[in-house]
Amino acid sequence: MVKNLRKLIEQVAKEKNLPVWTVERALKDAIAVAIKKDRKIRDYLDVELEDEGIKVFLVRKEGKEPLDISPEDLNRLAAYAAKEEFLKELEKAEEERGYLEFVELEGQIVFGVVRKIFENSDILVDLGKVTAILPKREQIPKESYKVGDRIKALLLEVRKQKGRYQLILSRTHPKFLLRLLELEVPEIKTGEIEVKAIAREPGERAKVLVSSKDTKIDPVGVVVGLRGSRIAPVSKELAGEKIEVIRWTEDIEELIKRSLSPAPVTKVRLIPEEKRAEVAVPKEKLSVAIGKHGSNVKLANKITGWYLDVMSEEDFEKLQSLRR
């Protein structure tokens, strides 16, 4: 019986282009399922295919113990399992293999087709061998999708729940913007240009902090491209997200000034122990510095790592005079 089962394993492994151990595990799981159904057993069963026959063990907290089952019953149930349960277990094994191939792609861009849109607006995406979920929270707010649409997203996470794998996608994560920039700007991929930080308000605006190993090279110009030729396709992919590229500097005061662009910053007072800075801008430019719904200053906070307290020049002077 075991000899026949081993032949079956080798044959299926060859036909399905699967590792022998994967097929063997699927068959042993199928036998375990058949025995549990027949004997109404709830405990976990460990099935071993040994030369002298099939061995089954009950697995409990205190250890493993042989299951009292006759060779005749074992052969009957194994034959049944090979016909009825094996295909189900094999499908699970093939599915698992498909998901495991995507583990190495975590943090990279994947391409798929929208297969279903759920009531909660989560999207089921067909990636070919497997499916993935693009949750509502990971979708760019202004975008809408329909079944059949092609979609590009970051493979955010490969997780396993209740024995099944699930792929989670994102179009809002900062790393998605980074990967898109890598596609358009080879110098980022090669390391000539380094992306120091990215902050996004998905679909609205983003700030990207860049530096160059070669001081003669303008990293902003390289990333933006001639007449915006490199940054434009990235912005288009992100539903028109306005992407501002900023040159990094070790001078934190200067970095803060650059981060609040397009507003002109006239004065900065650093409070290092709080990692906070008080920033003065012309009164008429205060709304520009803060941005719509505070977006400009929020993004500046994220890419600098400092909390920026932005105020008019008049309020800045008043605050400093109180300290004198």
Results as ranks from 00 to 15, higher is better:
residue 107 G to Y: 02
residue 214 D to A: 15
residue 132 A to C: 03
residue 122 D to P: 02
residue 53 G to A: 00
residue 37 K to M: 07
residue 26 A to Q: 06
residue 226 L to Q: 15
residue 91 E to S: 07
residue 22 T to M: 15
residue 159 R to Y: 04
residue 314 E to Y: 02
residue 172 T to F: 10
residue 21 W to R: 14
residue 106 E to F: 04
residue 111 F to N: 15
residue 9 I to K: 11
residue 233 P to D: 03
residue 54 I to D: 00
residue 40 K to H: 05
residue 305 G to T: 00
residue 95 E to A: 06
residue 265 V to S: 07
residue 129 K to F: 12
residue 317 E to A: 08
residue 223 V to K: 09
residue 126 D to F: 09
residue 314 E to H: 03
residue 154 L to A: 10
residue 47 V to F: 11
residue 33 V to E: 06
residue 220 V to Y: 08
residue 204 E to V: 14
residue 258 R to T: 09
residue 235 S to H: 11
residue 174 P to Q: 12
residue 1 M to C: 02
residue 90 L to K: 06
residue 294 G to N: 04
residue 310 V to E: 12
residue 196 K to C: 06
residue 58 L to C: 00
residue 27 L to Q: 01
residue 225 G to P: 05
residue 141 P to K: 13
residue 80 Y to V: 09
residue 85 E to S: 01
residue 129 K to C: 09
residue 323 R to L: 12
residue 92 K to V: 05
residue 236 K to R: 10
residue 227 R to L: 07
residue 290 I to H: 13
residue 299 L to K: 11
residue 280 A to L: 02
residue 321 S to H: 13
residue 38 D to E: 15
residue 85 E to R: 01
residue 224 V to H: 15
residue 213 K to S: 10
residue 61 K to A: 12
residue 161 Q to E: 15
residue 22 T to Y: 13
residue 41 I to G: 10
residue 182 E to S: 01
residue 130 V to T: 08
residue 239 A to I: 12
residue 267 K to P: 00
residue 54 I to P: 00
residue 298 K to L: 13
residue 82 A to E: 05
residue 132 A to Q: 03
residue 125 V to T: 14
residue 62 E to P: 02
residue 267 K to M: 02
residue 17 N to Q: 14
residue 311 M to V: 06
residue 216 K to D: 12
residue 160 K to E: 14
residue 308 L to I: 03
residue 49 L to P: 00
residue 97 R to N: 03
residue 285 K to M: 15
